[in-house]
Amino acid sequence: MSGNKSSLIKKVYALIGIVILVYSSYIVYVLVTHIWHFEKPMQHSQDIISEEEKLFKEMVKEKKMVEYNLGYKVIKQEDLENHFHHVGNEVIHDNFNLCIKCHGDIPHDKNKAIRAFLNMHSDFFSCEVCHIRLEKNKKFIWYNKKDGKEVKNSNIKAYLSNSENKLLPLEYIEGKYERYDSDSKNKFVEEFRKVISEISSDKKSQGLKLIHRNVSKKPISCDECHSNTLQQSYLPLSEIGYKEERIVQILSNEVVGMVNKYKEFYIPNFLKPGTINHENSDKK
């Protein structure tokens, strides 16, 4: 009996020995051969990849983090090539929203003047807030970006930057309010994403139509929320948790005034009947 036991221990030791030897052989191999730098250097101009390929490669790579040791604290942030200013904290991404699963976190691109502002708002407003116009029975909730759970008693006194929560409108169906990202819709979108490469083109169009059926043709514009008075604002700011001091800022002259400047900017003069584009005529 004791002979069997000692033989078993021996075998276990032998097995561990083999593992250690294989691993140490690997270490020795790496240590000895690393001076050769086996990676193929680019020698010919045809090896130089195009800008597009480079960008694609960069895009699929994991984010690189870097540390700056200041002696009294360490700043850890994303390594942004050619970016002068430090960004510090990482963006809290939304893992839950239906739309950004396909459209991403920085979806606005068309309107040159305001695209960065719109992307900034998508940090704390879900896409549905602006892209689904609620006429009656307006109701919104805040949800946590990481787990999607509803967050109650929002008390917003200051501006929201890199917010943990996002605002979401609710759909009014037969006397009940339902989230636009309900479990059933989530499930449908997930299924659709899985089968999209296999289904026929007409089915794809059908699916997309179904997913986007609530999307309004004309999204909520900046001045509909940044209005002159609280009553005129599309969003019920106090109901959704904004405190008076913050509402005053949102509806302040500097914000509303700036929104109007942008409005002027992105509706070019030549579209307004009866106006002359003085800037261009001066140049001529």
């Binding site: 800008e51 963006v91 920085i106 960065a116 992307n119 900034m120 998508s122 930057s161």
Partner: peptide, 14 residues
């Protein structure tokens, strides 16, 4: 007023 927002960003033409 605008640049304090972490996600004030866009994807450029390239």
């Amino acid at each position: 007023l605008c640049h304090k927002y972490r996600t004030l960003s866009r994807i450029d033409e390239k």
